[in-house]
Amino acid sequence: MTDLSTTVEHAEEAAQEVHDSHSADHSDKTVILGTTINAPIYTVVFGALALLTFFELAVAELLPRNFVTTTLLVVASIIKAVLVVLFYMHLKDDNPLYALALVLPLFIGLIATFFLLAVPTSTY
């Protein structure tokens, strides 16, 4: 009986740990650099994603295509992806090793693709 109540106590502590780690996600307010915004963190992230998309559109449509604009577009897309992965996929609270599931295959895939594309097809 004592063992069972100890187990229940531990389970409640564990549940509280999880709840605490996600409590910022449950709040109706978000604090960014000392400024309080009356919206959940997920809505703030969505606003950032929308703004970055408008930024990308503006860069692509209004500026000439060159190395700088291409770099800007790629960096903006990486920021958007990182925001989704950290906040929407909860990687900021989860095991950071999960990030390897995204980065490692990306690296392997790119190496394999560029190696295969480097093989000449017209000399056989």
Binding site: L104, P105, L106
Partner: peptide, 13 residues
């Protein structure tokens, strides 16, 4: 998802 990353990486690259 790691397996999906490889497929999409190859397609996009």
């Amino acid at each position: 998802l790691a397996s999906e990353v490889i497929i999409f990486t190859v397609l996009i690259a």
